[in-house]
Computed example of a mutant assay.
Amino acid sequence: MLVLLPPSEGKAGAVRGAPLDPGALSSPELGPAREAVLDELVELCAGDEVKAREVLGLSERQGAEVARNAALRSAPARPAGEIYTGVLYDALDLASLDAAARRRARASLLVFSGLWGVVRITDRIPAYRCSGGVKLPGLGALTAHWRGPLAAALPAVAGEGPVLDLRSSAYAAMWRPAGELADRTVTVRVLQSRIVDGVERRSVVSHFNKATKGRLVRDLLTAGPLPRTSRRLVEVLRGLGYRVEEAAPGRLDVVVTEL
């Protein structure tokens, strides 16, 4: 099974470590597309800070993020699983997984990125700031930049098992599974259920959506061998105590009452 994750806005800066080696990242066929984004991002952030902040959607108080981007090629790099932080990754808590669950995580988790396209949690990267919704002056929209390279690379990465898609909309736009692969791709929506005047009301949660998805992935990784079919995925999630409803072909609603 392949699990597609969004990155996090916040990232833990590596205190020490060798700098980035772009050629050592997984999916090396993405190398030219990665270098194109990296070159422009470093050049942009090494120049006019005001322009860089405008392009990246940063505030005046986030000037340090611009300076960090300017130094990406020389900054210390650490495994991506240590760099990404935030609600989803806090709930996933990769560092505390046992050895078997860590092996499953290394084999199954794929993190989307506006800068790298995709990375494995073992890929060594520096902390950066470049969301999937950014439009760089030269390359344009990163979602469009990545569509072709990812469409060529990811079907082989997906293998023959189910694909669990937990990405947010900006990253889902970078690659949409097609054909037979789309038939075994499952997206998840998290809904909060509340009883109001004796009637159940459901609403899409935002912040806690990420926490639920992080816990869900953690539970799958620790439960044992990952499901090999979409049908088995539903059965495993229900066995783990999740209230799962098949809202449409290829789409699951996970209904929670406590966030």
Results as ranks from 00 to 15, higher is better:
residue 20 L to I: 02
residue 111 V to E: 07
residue 100 A to G: 04
residue 75 A to F: 00
residue 58 L to N: 06
residue 33 A to K: 09
residue 69 N to P: 11
residue 122 T to D: 15
residue 129 R to D: 14
residue 102 R to H: 03
residue 159 G to R: 02
residue 35 E to A: 15
residue 73 R to M: 04
residue 226 L to K: 04
residue 188 V to D: 03
residue 24 A to C: 05
residue 133 G to K: 14
residue 213 K to F: 04
residue 54 E to D: 10
residue 202 R to G: 04
residue 158 A to H: 15
residue 223 A to H: 09
residue 152 A to L: 14
residue 222 T to D: 03
residue 194 R to S: 13
residue 183 D to V: 11
residue 187 T to Q: 15
residue 105 A to L: 05
residue 224 G to S: 08
residue 88 L to Q: 10
residue 122 T to V: 02
residue 179 G to Y: 05
residue 141 A to P: 15
residue 27 S to A: 14
residue 200 E to Q: 07
residue 251 R to D: 06
residue 43 E to L: 05
residue 140 G to Y: 12
residue 97 L to Q: 10
residue 32 P to S: 12
residue 161 G to C: 12
residue 113 S to Q: 08
residue 223 A to S: 12
residue 179 G to A: 13
residue 145 H to F: 13
residue 59 S to I: 09
residue 9 E to C: 11
residue 255 V to W: 08
residue 215 R to N: 11
residue 127 A to D: 09
residue 185 T to P: 11
residue 145 H to N: 07
residue 192 Q to L: 10
residue 62 Q to W: 00
residue 160 E to R: 14
residue 180 E to R: 15
residue 241 G to T: 12
residue 127 A to W: 07
residue 2 L to E: 03
residue 51 K to I: 07
residue 150 L to C: 05
residue 188 V to L: 05
residue 16 R to N: 11
residue 24 A to E: 11
residue 14 A to F: 01
residue 46 A to D: 05
residue 182 A to C: 10
residue 29 E to H: 08
residue 186 V to Q: 08
residue 50 V to G: 01
residue 149 P to D: 05
residue 149 P to S: 04
residue 18 A to T: 04
residue 161 G to P: 15
residue 144 A to D: 15
residue 134 V to Y: 01
